[in-house]
Simulated scan of single mutants.
Amino acid sequence: MGDRSRVLVVDDEAAIRDLMRTALRFHGFDVTEAGSGAEAVAAVRDARPDLMLLDVMLPDIDGFEVCRVLREEGEDVPVIFLTARDTASDTVLGLSIGGDDYVTKPFSIEALVARVRAVLRRTAPPERDEVLRVADVELDEATWTVRRAGTEIELSPTEFRLLAHLMRHHGRVLTRAQLLKHVWGWEHHGNPQVVETYISYLRRKLDPLGPPLIRTRRGVGYTLQP
């Protein structure tokens, strides 16, 4: 990740956009802006940002719908939602449709910049380019492909990172806090329900092709075992 990463700031309040633009440029980022959902979708297509700071409450379509539209088009730009509502349902909804993190308003600029850098680190292509194999599952980090019993499975970036972490530590029980830290980069915050949601997504895609691999240890966490 270079310091000149391009960040798209999406908020309908010009004062908030000005604040974030000034702070992000001070910290070495290139910044583009959008004031509505439609502008945000167009800006992603045109400017190809490395990350998007996306306000949930927009005047035309909300931030969740913007993210949903982009993901349906195959756009995988990392998204950090900006929301005034710190509720479990909003958090899970935002992350389940392809968001990477969320920041609750009001926020400190220092915390926002730290979250931007954390998401950029987390979503950068892996340096090791390993091919992981457990039972009949093969995960190739160089090509971001997953196969089970020879059948390719389409995973979102977050599902891919979660499966890779489970495979790298197969046979070991990983707590929800450990998964939040290593997959989402959340050490001191984060809703454990997000982990449960993504585990269910993985099971839905893996289990039709063979015996269940991801096991729940109640009250503890999850383990991937052949």
Score class of each variant (00 low, 15 high):
109 I>E: 02
46 D>S: 08
222 Y>A: 03
164 A>T: 10
130 E>W: 15
163 L>T: 05
192 P>F: 11
93 L>N: 04
119 V>Y: 11
192 P>S: 08
75 E>T: 05
179 L>A: 07
100 D>N: 15
135 A>F: 12
89 S>K: 09
21 R>I: 07
128 R>V: 13
48 R>M: 05
38 A>V: 15
199 I>S: 06
97 I>Q: 09
177 A>Y: 04
98 G>K: 10
143 T>M: 11
144 W>G: 00
95 L>V: 09
198 Y>D: 01
74 G>I: 02
145 T>G: 02
31 V>K: 14
87 T>C: 00
212 P>F: 07
61 I>L: 15
55 D>M: 09
95 L>Q: 06
95 L>S: 07
187 E>L: 11
204 R>T: 10
29 F>Y: 13
210 G>R: 04
113 V>N: 09
207 D>Q: 02
117 R>F: 08
201 Y>T: 07
190 G>V: 04
28 G>A: 06
47 A>H: 07
25 R>P: 02
77 V>P: 09
126 P>K: 14
34 A>Y: 03
59 P>E: 07
9 V>T: 12
89 S>P: 00
1 M>F: 14
192 P>A: 08
135 A>P: 08
31 V>M: 12
65 E>T: 14
175 T>M: 04
86 D>V: 05
113 V>E: 10
152 E>A: 15
142 A>Q: 14
68 R>E: 04
189 H>G: 07
198 Y>G: 01
55 D>V: 09
42 A>H: 03
88 A>D: 00
117 R>H: 10
142 A>N: 09
95 L>F: 13
85 R>Y: 14
87 T>A: 04
112 L>F: 12
217 R>Q: 07
96 S>A: 06
58 L>V: 02
119 V>N: 11
132 L>A: 10
145 T>D: 01
60 D>F: 11
192 P>W: 09
6 R>A: 15
73 E>P: 07
39 E>M: 13
139 L>V: 06
80 I>P: 11
36 S>D: 05
94 G>T: 01
77 V>N: 06
69 V>G: 04
77 V>F: 10
205 K>W: 05
59 P>W: 14
191 N>Q: 03
156 S>M: 10
181 K>P: 00
171 G>C: 09
212 P>Q: 06
158 T>D: 07
99 G>D: 04
129 D>P: 01
151 T>D: 01
54 L>C: 05
150 G>Y: 08
164 A>P: 05
5 S>V: 06
117 R>G: 07
157 P>W: 12
215 R>A: 00
21 R>N: 12
131 V>P: 05
112 L>I: 08
23 A>E: 09
61 I>M: 15
29 F>A: 03
53 L>I: 00
142 A>R: 15
47 A>G: 01
205 K>R: 12
26 F>A: 08
226 P>V: 04
87 T>N: 00
27 H>T: 10
27 H>F: 15
87 T>Q: 04
210 G>Q: 03
150 G>Q: 09
54 L>G: 02
8 L>Q: 14
1 M>S: 15
173 V>R: 03
